[in-house]
């Protein structure tokens, strides 16, 4: 089998004095959606931030598309094709929706089929195209945040809890959009607490606990096995 698109091997990450990741081993195959599950504080978000380079790896290696990117600064990783959709959404509220997209498109103007796909997935973005992004609702901001990752062909898209804090109707349209994104052949690594969302989108799954990956396999296997779900994730899923 060829090398996975992204591979973390024995990754340790410290944030200040705190040792968060204790040797994460994770493979994300090209194409499809890999779900990262686990309790709060298990290290899911830190893993994503380590991949985009916001946190430095203190030990271990991160390989992407056949290259060792462990020492690369964040902008270089972004240029190599990793997009990041953080939990905070991180949109630029002072700029218009259009300007946000222009910055994300980087290579040129957002236009053509990719922009059409964005508008099809997220109609409100067309409506508010010339408005400051700060005026958007929470759901629309999340749409913009995902749209920024869609506007340019990216090899790997990191998405951190897109459904958090959104109304169920908006979560549904978001899931549809992510499914459309997945159907374009994009590779997605996604953190999700909402198991129904995770099950709807995920192809494979990795479960984290205490800074390590404790289970990795196909989503279907986990989805069908209730005992395994309970053992791996305890009560964290029951809440949803």
């Amino acid at each position: 089998m060829s090398e996975p698109l992204l591979r973390l091997a024995g990754v340790h990450t410290h944030i200040g004095r705190y040792h968060i990741l204790h040797g994460v081993d994770l493979s994300v195959p090209e194409g499809g959606v890999t779900m990262l599950l686990g309790r709060n504080g298990a290290g899911k978000t830190t893993t994503l931030r380590t991949v985009i380079g916001h946190w430095r790896t203190s030990q271990g290696t991160v390989r992407f598309a056949g290259e060792d990117i462990t020492a690369w600064p964040t902008p270089r990783r972004a240029r190599a094709g990793i997009a990041d959709v953080p939990e905070s959404m991180g949109i630029f509220t002072d700029l218009t929706v259009e300007e946000n997209m222009v910055l994300a498109a980087r290579a040129g103007k957002p236009e053509g089929p990719r922009l059409d796909a964005v508008f099809k997935a997220f109609p409100p973005l067309r409506t508010f195209w010339k408005n400051p992004a700060g005026n958007l609702s929470g759901g629309q901001k999340q749409m913009l945040s995902v749209a920024r990752a869609m506007i340019e062909p990216r090899r790997l898209i990191l998405i951190d809890e897109p459904s958090k804090g959104l109304a169920p109707a908006i979560v549904r349209s978001l899931v549809e959009a992510l499914r459309a994104l997945k159907d374009t052949g994009a590779t997605i690594l996604m953190v999700e607490q909402n198991f129904s969302v995770a099950r709807a989108l995920g192809d494979s799954v990795a479960v984290m606990d205490e800074g390590r990956v404790i289970h990795a396999g196909p989503m279907a296997e986990l989805a069908e096995n209730r005992e395994m779900q309970e053992r791996l994730m305890g009560l964290s899923l029951e809440a949803h």
Partner: peptide, 24 residues
Amino acid sequence: SPFGRVLQAIRENDFRAEAIGFRV
């Protein structure tokens, strides 16, 4: 200019500007 927009993006959230690929 587009350069000015990048500056505004950096002012608001430099982490994000880096994650989009700009060398802040």
